[in-house]
Every structure is written in C-alpha cells, then in structure tokens.
Amino acid sequence: MKTASRLPWRVCIAGLALLWLLPLYVMLANSLKTIREITQSQYVLPPGGFEVQNYAVALGVLRHGLVNSTLVALPATALAVLLGSGAGFFLARLRFRHSQAVFFAATIATFLPYQIVLIPLTQLLADLRLINTRPGLIVAYLLLNTPMAALITATFFQTVPAEMQEAAALDGCGPVTFYWRILLPVAQLGLLSTAILIFTTIWNEFLIPTAMTQGTFNQLATPVLAGLKGNYAQLWHIQMAGATLTSLPPLALFVFLGRYFVSGLMAGTLK
C-alpha cells in the first residue's frame, strides 16, 4: 500500500490512542502525587515527586484483599482449566452421540448473565456452609467458569491435527494417555490462553464477592477497592494507588503474555 496514505491514518489513530491512554495516565500520575497537589486540582500535570508512600497506604488496606484474590483466582482457574479441558477434549476429539447437545447446553450456561443465578448460588453456598469462605468463592467461580473453559479448550483442541490422534491410537494409546501425555502438552499455549482469560475474569469480578464475602479474611481485592472510595473519601491519590495495585496482575498478563491474552479473548467468543 502507498506509504503516503498511511500518515493521516497514523496521526489520527495515534491521537485517539492518546485519548485512550488518558485514564491510565491519570491513574498512574495521580497515584504518585501528594495530597497537596491533589487538593490544588493539579490532575493533568505530571507529579512533582514520587510519593511512593501512597502505595504503602493503599497496600495496607488492600493487602488482605490482594492475597485473597490470589488464593481464590489461582486455584479456581487451575481447576476450571483442568476440568474444562477434559470435557473439551471429549467434545472436540471424541465425537459422541450427544456431543452437540452438551456443547449447546454448556454454551448457554456460559453466556447467560450470571446475575440470574446469584440468589440460588448464595443459598447453595450457605447450605454447604461455604458462604463467606475462600473455598466457597472457588466453588462459585468453578461453577461459572468451567463451562467456558470446556468450550474454549475444545476450540483449541480442534486445531490439533487428526493424524496425531490416529497415530496415537495405532500406538495403542488410550484416551487418558492421549489427553494427558500428548494433547495437553501439544495444546499448552491454548491452555495458557484459556487460563489467562479465566484468571482475568475472576480477578476482575465484583458481584460474587460483594454478595458472598465479608471481612478481612475472605474479601477479595475488587470489593475492597470499591470500599476504599467510601472510607478515604477525597483521597484520590490513595484510590489511584489502590486501583493501580489491583490492576497489576491482569495488566502484567496483558503486557507480558499479550498474544495469549488476545487469543484467549478471541476464543472466549467461540468465534
């Protein structure tokens, strides 16, 4: 394509990109300002110094929440991918009579807004004595994310060449061995993408911990961050530091594993 015609596009898109970066800039810049700078309404200028103290204050409040989010999101993701990939394998590689029906049912369970099961989910966890516990949250997130994991891994497994499966079958390799020894290692990047998508979803989720957890021991980072607003009302710099801390894990995945982040995102639409 002609080089000349690219320039206006570049300028236009770069301009929009700046606009898109503005909130991120505001978050980072103001998380490093002093309360004095904030009260003088200096929001757009870069910070005068580096007020790292803000992060210490925010971390003091968010500490437990971040730990809890990690302790919930990691095992829930691992379990969802593990359980889901087993089913995904069956759906994608071992066609059976009702595989389409299962796929259909799982898709609906995945995409219906989960708000509609919030009331029974609360009751279910209460009946299991798991309400307001981290295992309870793990169970809730497993229920909500395993179908998604199954569908996405199924789409990834479909791209594995059929010959590989045939060869394995000829070698006398059963489904368990094939799944565990061949399929998972071969499709590990797909699994990584799936895991990133699910981890990010769980980490960023807000409704479930708001409805089901209380207190330092069990509350996740997102409700604590939302509560930070109420308690430290006009302290925007602390809020921004807290928002930055809460965003770090998903942003890190986005920055360092961007390709897999994107491929998970796309696979999540079952495109």
């Binding site: 898109w20 991120l24 960023n204 607003k229 809460t246 998903p250």
Partner: peptide, 16 residues
C-alpha cells in the same frame, strides 16, 4: 493502547 482497558476490572475503570 486501545486494548489494555479490557484487562482492567470494572471497579478500577469505575473508580478512574
């Protein structure tokens, strides 16, 4: 630069 917001929680973007 256009995609990063999708990695943020609604709580973060709401606060921002």
């Amino acid at each position: 630069l256009f995609l990063y917001p999708i990695a943020l929680s609604f709580v973060v973007s709401g606060t921002l």
